[in-house]
Amino acid sequence: MKEITVEKHVYDQIRAAILGRQLAPGKQLVEHNISNTLGVSRTPIRNAIKKLSLEGLVDLIPNRGAFVTSPSKEEVIQAYELRAKLEFLAVQKSMLVMNENDYLSIQKIIEDEKRV
C-alpha cells in the first residue's frame, strides 16, 4: 500500500511540474535526476511516466526516453481561442453583479499595469 502512495506522490509532482511549466515542453524526463530530486526509487517514476504518457502529457520515444509533450500549433491556437471565450464569459457574468467600487478597483489595476 505504501508503494501506491509513493507512486501517487511522484505522479503528482511530475504532473504539477509539467502543468506549472517548471518542466518545459520537449524537456527530457531523466529517471535518475527525478529519483535524486524526489528521493525515491526508479520504479514509481517509471509508473508515473507511463501514466502521464497515457494522459498525453509525456511522449515516450523508443531508445530515446520520455519527454514532456510539445503542443502542436493547432493545440496552442485552440487553447488561446478557448481562453478568449472563457474570459469573455467571465466578464459578461461578472458585469451582472459588480458595483461601482468593483469597477473603480478594476480601473486602478489597469492603470497600475500600464505603468509596469
Rank of each mutant, 00 (worst) to 15 (best):
L96W: 07
G56D: 12
K2L: 14
L38T: 04
N33P: 00
S105V: 02
M95R: 13
I61T: 10
V30W: 01
A48H: 08
V91C: 09
L38P: 06
L29V: 03
N101G: 12
V6D: 08
N99L: 01
K93I: 13
R21N: 14
T37D: 07
K114A: 02
M95F: 04
S105C: 07
F67A: 00
K114D: 02
G20P: 08
I77L: 14
A17V: 05
I45Q: 10
E31P: 09
M95N: 10
H9T: 09
P71L: 05
I77K: 14
N36R: 14
A66T: 03
A84I: 12
P25S: 02
R42W: 05
H32L: 14
A24R: 11
T37H: 08
N101I: 02
T37E: 09
E7G: 04
S94H: 03
H32Y: 11
G65T: 07
A79I: 12
T69K: 14
M95H: 06
K108S: 04
R64I: 10
S41G: 15
P44K: 00
I106H: 00
D59K: 03
E74T: 15
N36G: 14
P44Q: 07
G56N: 12
V40R: 13
R21A: 11
H32P: 00
V91Q: 12
T5C: 03
G65N: 06
S72N: 08
I109A: 10
R83A: 15
L82M: 14
G26I: 01
D12G: 13
S105L: 06
V68W: 00
K85W: 05
D102T: 05
I34W: 01
V30L: 00
T43G: 08
N33I: 05
I34Y: 02
K73M: 13
D112C: 03
K93S: 12
E74Y: 11
A48F: 06
N101A: 15
S94Y: 04
N33W: 03
P62M: 00
R15G: 00
H9V: 05
V91D: 12
L23G: 02
L86M: 15
N47F: 12
N33T: 10
E3R: 05
V6P: 03
R64C: 06
L60V: 11
K8Q: 15
I61Q: 07
R46D: 07
R115H: 06
V40H: 07
V6W: 02
T5H: 11
T43I: 13
A24D: 08
N99P: 02
I4A: 15
L52Q: 03
R83V: 09
R42T: 15
N63G: 13
S94V: 02
E100N: 09
S105W: 04
A48K: 07
T43N: 09
E87H: 02
E3V: 05
A79Y: 11
K73E: 15
Q22H: 06
K73W: 10
V58W: 08
L96I: 01
T37P: 02
E111S: 11
N33K: 10
A24T: 09
K108C: 00
K73Q: 15
S105E: 10
Y11E: 08
P62W: 01
M1L: 02
R115G: 04
A84N: 13
I4G: 13
D59H: 01
S105Y: 03
V30A: 02
K51M: 10
E75S: 08
N99R: 13
Q28V: 01
L54I: 12
I109Y: 06
F88E: 15
P71F: 05
G56F: 07
A90V: 11
R15E: 09
N99A: 07
